[in-house]
Amino acid sequence: MHEMGIAQQMISIALEAIPKDLPDPRVEQMNLRVGRLAAVVEDSLRFCFEIISKDTCLEGAKLVIETVPVKARCRRCHHEWEVEDVVFTCPSCERGEIEVLSGRELEVASLELAD
């Protein structure tokens, strides 16, 4: 529901990262990392990105999204595992409180520019 704001941030992060002395840069692809727990809807994000990148050097750029799995660690027995079905109970000791190691990412990884 806040995908428009996220798309906006993505574009300003990209614009900031492109060297100022580059004549007429064109972004062909933006690589994103999105954790499975992140509160973003991919279709909606693509739609917002398309709209908001118009008339910038990101217009028409391909958005490639790498989905990051949810990994957790048990604070009690230190077991680490990939959380498949949102059940965060430690499969090893079934008791400990856990720490989420990954799955909340929402990151611009890189840009690919046309030569």
């Binding site: 941030q9 992060i13 060297p19 990151e107 611009v108 690919e112």
Partner: peptide, 13 residues
Amino acid sequence: MEINIQKRVLEAN
């Protein structure tokens, strides 16, 4: 050309 960024989108917040 590839530009490596690795920046959190919600960093400003």
